[in-house]
Amino acid sequence: MIIGLEQYKDKWNIHTDASIQPGLEAITGALDELGNPHKNGRFIHLAGTNGKGSTATFLSAILQAHGHSVGNFFSPCLEDLHDQIQMNGEPINPVELEQVMERLSKIKTPLTDFELLTAAAFIAFQQQAPDFAIIEAGMGGALDSTNVINPELSIIPSISIEHTNFLGETIEEITRHKAGIIKKWKPVVIGELPLKSLEIIQETADRLHAEVIRPAGQIDVPLKLKGPHQQKNAQLALEAAKELLGLEFSEEKAGLGLSSATLPYRFEEVFPDVIFDGAHNQASAEALVATIRDTFPDDPIHIVMGIFKDKDYRSVLRHLETISNHFTFVDFDNERALPAAELFKESSSKRKTITNMCDILPVSHNKEKTIVTGSLHLLTLLRNSANVFFKNYQ
């Protein structure tokens, strides 16, 4: 579900399918009707399990610090579809998106919701003409609707098991999907990958004569985005920027960009002593646990958790239980939401309760740090209800 899309579809009488249908035939046909807006511009393409949004944000900040305009296409949304299409860090405004949707209402090719939004991003970037456009794949890579571009550079921050019903059950199958964004003669920057993934990426790159760039060393820049994994994402962005900017690259400007970069729900303190982090798979849960241990080594931790039923919630729970015995499981309004009772039953925590999203008061007690995690949709619902919660702080 793409939050906020229905109002535009209704206004412009656009009919799309809400299901996921991997493949490039439909998006290619639609873009051809639109005059192929994706064939002009300097694109950077990201695919991977975790780290895409943070790496894209770091890279955007570095490029802007060098005086360049930057478009971003993020997936999924945080608040609603407007924040998925950004120019220089600002979400597309409704007036601009109305103009885009008017053009899309005239095409004949049937699309899915995500294909429609992908096409909208390409139209928006054609109209705004940023110096660079950073495109984040929605799922996989090879058959993702964003994989119609010929990027100057690709980035694959991480690979782990995910979306097995679409991408396959094994790390090898999933990696082949991610490797599909690598293009002939164009470099690919990669993070720390499983050995099997690394072998497939290298084989793919060799076949396409694409240079594989692996960051070395550490960055010495204070980051607003916390955690050891964000240091790695920042290093990926730094290597990508060096490749894109060449002789124009400045360490000083890059440092300014990295230190200014922010992204919602990446270990973000939304309320006093209440941290929001959208960890919803094994790798992101591992990163969250490492960040908690690094940031709050001596504080008791309270986990507030709600998650989609198609995520690996058992693995997420097992990792979080290594740093806390106090859990609150949340029911929230979404057809994909896992019932809180299922999490309660699965958990081995000694202190655990079930609540409804409307009844949560995100205030820490007894010197606890509260970590709200799981579904980004839940985090967005809670943030949008902030005015109700803040009444309790008065």
Rank of each mutant, 00 (worst) to 15 (best):
Gln7Pro: 11
Lys11Phe: 07
Trp12Ile: 12
Ile14Glu: 04
Ile14Ala: 06
Thr16Gly: 05
Thr28Asp: 03
Asn36Val: 07
Lys39Arg: 06
Thr57Lys: 11
Gly67Glu: 09
Gly71Cys: 02
Asn93Lys: 08
Arg103Leu: 13
Thr109Ile: 14
Pro110His: 04
Pro110Asp: 01
Ala119Leu: 09
Gln126Thr: 02
Asp131Phe: 10
Glu136Ile: 07
Ser145Ala: 12
Ser145His: 02
Pro151Leu: 08
Ile159His: 01
Asn165Ser: 15
Ile182Arg: 04
Val188Glu: 00
Val189Pro: 00
Leu193Lys: 00
Pro215Asp: 01
Ile219Pro: 03
Leu225His: 01
Lys226Met: 15
His229Arg: 08
Gln231Arg: 11
Lys232Arg: 14
Gln235Lys: 13
Lys242Glu: 08
Ser260Glu: 09
Leu263Trp: 14
Phe267Ile: 09
Glu268Leu: 13
Val270Ala: 15
Asp277Cys: 12
Ala279Glu: 05
Ala285Trp: 06
Leu288Ile: 06
Asp294Arg: 07
Asp298Arg: 14
Ile307His: 06
Asp312Arg: 10
Glu321Asn: 07
Phe332Cys: 08
Asn334Gln: 14
Leu338Arg: 04
Leu338Val: 11
Glu346Ser: 15
Glu346Leu: 15
Leu361Arg: 00
His365Phe: 15
Lys367Ser: 15
Lys369Asp: 10
Ser375Lys: 03
